[in-house]
Write a protein that binds this DNA or RNA. Structure first.
Lengths: 384, 384
DNA sequence: CTTTGTTTTTCCAATCAGTGAAAAAAGTTT
DNA sequence: AAACTTTTTTCACTGATTGGAAAAACAAAG
């Protein structure tokens, strides 16, 4: 049974306050009067909650135009005074974002030392100088996206071969150094959370799957508006069996998605049929240039990934699939093949799924990292 | 964005009341004193909530033994005074259950008329006589499990080819006739909900997948303690592609789970290799009798279903998989093959999943139907 | 310029759920 | 019978929401 906590009056207050905050994010600017109508809370309650949010500095008040009566005092997010630092270890970038997930400032994350735990010291230094160049009190927190296995609640990086980290208490150390809240997440989850957080303001997509396809293939599953982690390791779509008697995969199974269409496999396939060994960047150019063999391989990749997506759709029936990762750089061609396979092989009900590529507009790692902190601000409280 | 409702004081009260009710279900009998300690609510609050629950008749008070002080007045569920009627259209049975999901009385559901909407009238009659033979005020509601497409919130059966129903307003009609709350669900979901509801009292399994494998193959996904319906049609695991270039399936894809191991396929396979056409019941006996060809086919079915389960585990990483449906009658042999495939082909983290057969102990359709009503009683309220 | 009407915000008394401590009740043990 | 324990009830208090009324601020009409 879920660990259940008692309900209290304080909880109701925090809940309603968050409700108001979310409403303002979604449809700002709003007056107290409008908020009261929308939430069906009493004017008093709205007034008190707003006063508090103003005092904390989360909201900002501006004058509105009268529509024949007293001028409304419009409320909106105080974007300037609420900043978030985003750290992306995949792309080795660091950025300053606002609450809407817009990047205000960006700089590369550079390390003198080799990969390993000692990077932490340098990271801390670089963060410190970024914090000091702005007002510390305007910074809400720091979100970090790390490729690897992460324990977000403890703030640990359990294992990141890419960075040479193992059981590194990232969050506690930085929090002590910097005196600001710090949150870590796996890069895939951060990406999906970024999509969810900053899309939520616009539309309601409670059920979607974010696919990261590149050198490996993973997925992040969001159902009922919640990221689903299962017992901690959900989303390993890369080792889904598509071809029961297909080629052996490193995982022990046969015909896994990854064994068929991870980037190294595609490049190998290209080399097999043409004799040319390419990097992925070169391959991408071939595709853009209309190279026949390359297009064939994109078609193949789309076909296989499409079958994988059909499997996912049949099982979870999401409203949206976002395809990110390097493979998504292959562009519209890939997307169309995916849609084609889905509409051909999907079940009647499940194939109305939208397929989108996570283009540059779609945030990326830094926005995902920022969303770790932003989500907290707008998350409805749970009983405590 | 989720439709958000305001928080109110009344909500807190209802929430805490439910909290107490759930605690009593889980660890009854409990005294008010113990409840206050467990919930960390004040004695006053617990006292008031319990008084109300007693007044409604949901709880019962008994005398406890003193441990050196005043005798505790122990509280437990008032099982006798809170009954639920369960209707299972798959097995055509009707039953009277208590809040723990135990079946107290069971009778076949018989119809004079042919399949079709007119069955409803007869159902209503039979329910009426069952209600009249007990005290109406002791009956909390009626839960109905229907094979087919169901809209539970509207109480409609959208389509059930098996029963010859289409767009039938089942719930509204019965509620009008009988004056009791009625709930419908798809049979697969009801089964899974039954597992969830009556297991919750014992252990916490928030992430599990219920597989119904028989003439068709479906799944019900429970993540974070919530049944996941996606956009309405989740769980169609039967058309998951396992063998990319395998045999054509009726759905348009190739090598679907159903195309490989639905019961008709298994029987056909048996006929192919032995020339004998069997019913499933006969096939089951062959298996029990140790018939070599039959065992081979069970092994095959387990192998294929196992791959499907690995795919599910990799994606969702559940804690438990319950295999129900006719195929589960093949017993331990099948289960062991499934476990074997999972431990061979699963990823390191995801293969600690438990696999259980939904044996007769595991409730079944009627318990699932009953759980529709019971769940409502113990569900934590949401803001309204 | 004043009056009237509208829109928005603030104020106020009332309600109601939860709190914590103390009293009361009901036992057991010495 | 007295002392101690355990459990329940009582009571005065806090604090969040409520709904209505008053006040504030403004536009348009007279």
């Amino acid at each position: 049974m879920k660990e259940l906590k008692k309900g209290s009056l304080k909880f109701v207050q925090r809940y309603n306050q968050t409700l108001i905050l979310r409403l303002i994010r979604q449809r700002s600017p709003l007056s107290r009067y409008e908020l009261a109508k929308l939430t069906k809370l009493s004017p008093t309650t709205v007034g008190n909650a707003v006063d508090e949010l103003l005092a904390i500095g989360l909201l900002r008040e501006t004058e509105g135009a009268s529509s024949g009566g007293r001028k409304p005092r419009l409320l909106e997010l105080n974007a300037k005074g609420n900043l978030v630092i985003a750290v992306g270890f995949m792309g080795r970038q660091i950025a300053l974002c606002n609450l809407q997930g817009q990047i205000l400032e960006q700089q590369p994350l550079v390390f003198q030392s080799q990969d390993g735990p000692q990077m932490l010291e340098e990271l801390s230094q670089q963060l410190k100088s970024l914090i000091d160049s702005h007002q510390r009190e305007n910074i809400l927190g720091i979100g970090i996206s790390v490729p690897g296995l992460v324990d977000p609640s403890g703030g640990l990086v359990l294992l990141s071969t890419y960075l040479g980290w193992e059981s590194l208490p990232l969050t506690p150390r930085l929090e002590e150094d910097l005196g600001l809240p710090v949150m870590v997440e796996n890069d895939g989850i951060a990406l999906a959370l970024g999509e969810k957080t900053f899309r939520e303001a616009l539309e309601k997509e409670e059920n979607f799957v974010y696919i990261h396809a590149g050198y490996g293939i993973g997925a992040t599953v969001v159902l009922g508006g919640e990221i689903q982690r299962g017992e901690g390791l959900a989303g390993e779509i890369g080792h889904m069996t598509i071809d029961w008697q297909g080629p052996q995969c490193s995982c022990g199974s046969r015909g896994c998605l990854e064994a068929l269409i991870a980037i190294p496999r595609l490049l190998a396939k290209y080399q097999q049929s043409t004799g040319k060994a390419l990097t992925f960047a070169q391959f991408k150019e071939k595709v853009a240039g209309g190279d026949e063999k390359a297009l064939e391989i994109v078609d193949f990749a789309g076909g296989v990934l499409g079958v994988g997506l059909v499997n996912v759709c049949n099982l979870l029936n999401p409203q949206l699939i976002v395809v990110g990762g390097e493979l998504s750089l292959l562009g519209e061609l890939l997307r169309q093949k995916l849609c084609q396979v889905i509409s051909l092989n999907g079940l009647p009900g499940t194939k109305d799924v939208q397929v989108q590529l996570a283009g540059p507009h779609s945030g990326g790692e830094l926005v995902g990292a920022a969303s770790l902190v932003v989500e907290k601000m707008f998350a409805l409280p749970v009983m405590s």
